[in-house]
């Protein structure tokens, strides 16, 4: 019985894996082909990989874009985790009526489509440009600022704090730790997997973010990877081999972050902290 279950699990996961990675494999094959073969839907590896890579690196600022995306994604991830978890923890542990009301208002902000607030936000950054150009339009800071503080992560950390053993907080207070100390010394270490999940999501959101960077970043030297990929497809006769190459390269960092972070998802790791 158990064995049958096991076999079923593997078969099910293998099918799911195949379905999940098939398009990615297709891209990997496409990056070795000429554009005309990509549009023909050819699924046999070709010999054009080197040409595609040279074309991409010689004609486009892909290195600049990767560096920009990395800067934005790393800073965003770190700040998001810090601000989001502080707030999520604060809302849940120091719960009060007033805070719940504020929480509900903050949550409203994730419910409106970004397209609706984009132009007012752009106007706001226009005004920031006038006083603090370093944070204004056409700076990486303008991409980072609105994305590091989102209701999404406040909500996420709050829901996870609900699963956190509250007696640990009381124990910390008994031991004479300050509230900040309790947060950093007790909460943060025992919520490692929550932070790992948040890191993956924050990194990914930032890495793939398109609409806001598109509007706010104008100079090519500030462009991030999704903007570059969009430019690649802009021509009258786009080179699909080069596009696929860029996309595979763009996918790898997030996949790597995921692979490293998911190792923290090991059942029972919490046990040692909870005692």
């Amino acid at each position: 019985m158990n064995k049958i279950k096991r076999i079923f699990t593997y078969v099910f996961l293998s099918i799911a894996t195949f379905v999940s990675i098939f398009p990615f494999l297709w891209m990997c094959i496409s990056m070795t082909n000429k554009s005309v073969d990509v549009t023909r839907g050819r699924l046999i590896p070709g010999s054009h990989l080197f040409e595609n890579i040279t074309n991409l690196f010689q004609n486009y600022n892909i290195i600049t874009s990767i560096v920009n995306s990395l800067i934005v994604a790393v800073i965003t991830t770190v700040l998001t985790l810090l601000i989001g978890s502080l707030a999520g923890y604060g809302f849940e542990i120091f719960r009060s009526k007033g805070k719940d009301v504020v929480f509900n208002i903050l949550i409203l902000s994730m419910m409106i489509p970004f397209a609706a607030i984009m132009i007012p936000l752009y106007r706001l950054f226009g005004r920031i440009s006038a006083t603090a150009p370093l944070f204004g339009i056409d700076t990486l800071a303008a991409v980072i600022l609105p994305t590091v503080i989102t209701a999404f992560f406040v909500f996420f950390f709050r829901q996870n704090t609900k699963m956190f053993a509250r007696d640990l907080v009381e124990a910390g207070r008994m031991d004479g730790l300050g509230e900040i100390g309790i947060f950093f010394r007790i909460f943060v270490p025992s919520m490692k997997t929550t932070y790992a999940a948040a890191a993956i999501i924050a990194f990914m959101n930032s890495w793939n973010n398109y609409l806001w960077p598109l509007i706010v970043l104008q100079s090519p030297e500030n462009h991030t990877i999704p903007l570059l990929i969009s430019t690649l497809g802009a021509g009258y006769s786009p080179d699909y081999g080069v596009i696929m190459t860029a996309i595979v390269i763009a996918t790898l960092p997030t996949a790597l972050v995921f692979f490293l972070m998911q190792k923290h998802f090991v059942a029972g790791m919490m046990g040692s902290v909870k005692g």
């Binding site: 226009g126 440009s129 204004g136 339009i137 598109l214 903007l227 969009s230 430019t231 802009a234």
Partner: peptide
């Protein structure tokens, strides 16, 4: 002259954002 290469759809969005907000920077 500095030339920025982006897709036609991207230009439409940037131009709309800039012109409608009155923020002519960039």
């Amino acid at each position: 002259m500095e030339i920025v290469d982006s897709s036609s759809a991207d230009i439409v969005q940037r131009l709309n954002a800039g012109l409608s907000s009155g923020t002519m920077k960039g």
